[in-house]
């Protein structure tokens, strides 16, 4: 499954400045593993020691936070987009 991972500005230096990384994967977890395989230093910035998402990292599929879906096991369709953004808030 070909998917696109969209990176926030804070992570782009690690991939040579690109805003997106094309990878293969059927779930968010697989897509991220494919990104880590090419850019290993991204792993520790997105995940904690237990492999869970850091609490200030938000990941969206189809505009929906994966914490509402199936977390890292959330399915991504062919041509789908996985968006990584830092958590911020304040009404």
């Amino acid at each position: 499954m070909a998917v696109t991972v969209k990176l926030p500005t804070q992570l782009r230096a690690s991939v040579g400045g690109a805003s997106t990384v094309p990878v293969a994967g059927a779930t968010v977890g697989e897509a991220l593993d494919a990104v880590y395989a090419e850019h290993p230093d991204l792993r520790e910035r997105i995940c904690d020691e237990d492999g869970e998402l850091r609490r200030f990292v938000n990941i969206y599929v189809g505009g929906e936070d994966i914490r509402y879906l199936d977390g890292l096991a959330t399915a991504v369709g062919e041509g789908g987009e996985v968006q990584i953004l830092p958590a911020v808030a304040g009404g």
Binding site: Q10, R45, I46, R54, F56, V57, P86, A87, V88
Partner: peptide, 9 residues
Amino acid sequence: YVCERCFGP
């Protein structure tokens, strides 16, 4: 607003 190392605020 965000840490480039760990995404903390």
